[in-house]
Design a binder for these strands. Structure first.
Lengths: 301, 301
DNA sequence: AGTTGGTTCTGCATTTTTGCATAATGGATG
DNA sequence: CATCCATTATGCAAAAATGCAGAACCAACT
């Protein structure tokens, strides 16, 4: 049996047709159909009920699904491990961080790092989703709940506090509020949550006057650039807002989210020299920034 | 990455060269070499040190070996499960037993069975090696140590006692011994063990006069046919010898091997109708045979 | 009833993979 | 030193797999 046929099988089960599966597999529909046919012949089993509306898995196939998924998991584990080894051999460190932190906060320090360490190549993955630190990335700078995964190690950088900010241009033109009582005279920029609203969303819904919301953005990133453009007033993590020279901090967002910013890596990389070098550099850089912020904001961060 | 390439990789690791691996894989040496080359390109890793004496795995590849073997195991599990399902759907019962028991002891009863149960197809696998009853076979009739695998169920048929036998033709020409004191006047057929000698081998080495050993066979099967042909005197399990009309039992082999004959199946097949039918039929048949043997040999069997 | 948009399945052309034959290399042996 | 036997690696022909185009079917919609 050709092992690759099982990849075709898996995708037809998942997508429901040879056509849809061919799109995922980046091949032609007739190829998928033929590979399934060959597999059925070799196993001596009917795996699908072929209909014009698609391929419907038989009970026989459903009974094999667990084993099939285990095959996929084993291949994924192999490929993941191969990628980890490949990165190690090439002297690459893969760093993941949210979009905003990536583009706004790390660009300059990473330029510095590259000058100091030309042998270490940092591959930056900007993603608002968490990456798996056992294989998808080596280091994460992430904001969120404190980590609970015992296989990770690292340090807490700062509490993830937020404040209301506007741009200098906006303030010069309109003034800026220092209490929520002043909100009525200003325009606001909202961040629309796709997921269930969290406490920050609730705070905005409670305090931003509904009639004064001039823009709604679907991501923090786009909201940030809208505030920076002077379109209105919005909320922003202090770690970003405090370090943006064009921003004026109006007032704190008085919410206990429990979120923190952490710099993390996988336990097995604790002794990996090139990963430690990047971690130590980032830690030093970030702690200096945090000290500066503490001078301004006190112990809350 | 083409999943099938990992099969090629695994076999090259195991066989030590693309040529040897091609034999196992039933393909050409150049195909194997090219598939490895493609895989190395895709992974961005050097997997082998290519020498004229063969392919030597790199440390990189050795580090991936565990994951690679897990891929193979996952595929094996899938294929095994598919075969089990296939057998079930076709109404086949796979019965395994040693060569001698198979050809000599079961041929007639299985003919009877087929007449009584035309809907159940028995696939007989004659093998002196144990087959895995979770997937390789459904039922085993095997002689050896009592089973310890908790996943198997079945019943003990008989103690695996042995005796010295000769053919009727031999006896008519030469008489036959009833004690080891008579051995000096006869020719003997030995079974040469490949593995470490067991108690039966020791018994033969102790009692068969070295100068009187006329033939040495590498398997019980060939020794059996040699005895039957009248070439000499040899040992044989009573379960076979007692049921061979052309054999004369000279004397018992006075050795406690601890071995027994068992009829076994996997616990998960306990309620599978077609497997139960075969089990019940064989049990009945074998217990009748055993009763007959007990009349002759007493409680030792 | 006709149209639309999804699907499966098939014939044929194109592309890719495989196999064959063989050159080249290196280690073991006489 | 020559020979033998193992191997890897490569060019080219053959075989197999794939992709394309389209027929046929079916359900949903107008």
């Amino acid at each position: 049996m050709e092992w690759g046929d099982l990849r075709f099988l898996l995708h037809v089960v998942r997508e429901g047709s040879t056509l849809a599966a061919s799109r995922v597999l980046n091949t032609s529909q007739s190829t998928v159909m033929r590979r399934i046919a060959v597999l059925e012949g070799q196993l001596g089993l009917s795996l699908f009920e072929k209909r014009r509306s698609g391929y419907v898995p038989t009970d026989t196939l459903l009974g094999l699904l667990g084993k099939l998924e285990a095959v996929e998991a084993a291949h994924s584990a192999f490929e993941s491990e191969a990628r980890v080894i490949c990165r190690g051999l090439s002297g690459t460190v893969r760093l993941t961080t949210p979009e905003l932190i990536s583009s706004h906060f790390l660009k300059f320090p990473l330029q510095q790092f590259r000058q100091l360490n030309p042998d270490i190549r940092i591959e930056l993955v900007a993603s608002d989703e968490y990456l798996d630190l056992s294989w998808e990335a080596d280091i994460a700078l992430r904001a969120g709940d404190p980590p609970t995964d015992g296989a990770l190690f690292g340090r807490r950088i700062i509490n993830d506090t937020w404040s209301v900010y506007c741009s200098r241009a906006y303030a010069e033109a309109n003034g800026y509020p220092t209490t929520t009582a002043d909100f009525g005279k200003h325009g606001f920029i909202c961040i629309v949550e796709r997921a269930r609203p969290d406490r920050l969303t609730e705070w905005m819904n409670t305090h931003f006057p509904p009639d004064n919301i001039v823009l709604r953005h679907s991501s923090l990133m786009s909201a940030f650039f809208s505030v920076k453009a002077g379109d209105g007033i919005g909320i922003c993590p202090d770690m970003i807002g405090m370090n943006e020279p064009d921003f004026i901090r109006c007032m704190p967002v008085d919410v206990q989210t429990g979120k923190e910013v952490w710099l993390l890596a996988h336990e097995r990389n604790r002794q990996t020299p090139r990963i430690r070098i990047v971690l130590d550099f980032l830690t030093e850089h970030l702690m200096k920034k945090v000290q500066t912020m503490r001078l301004v904001m006190g112990e809350k961060v």
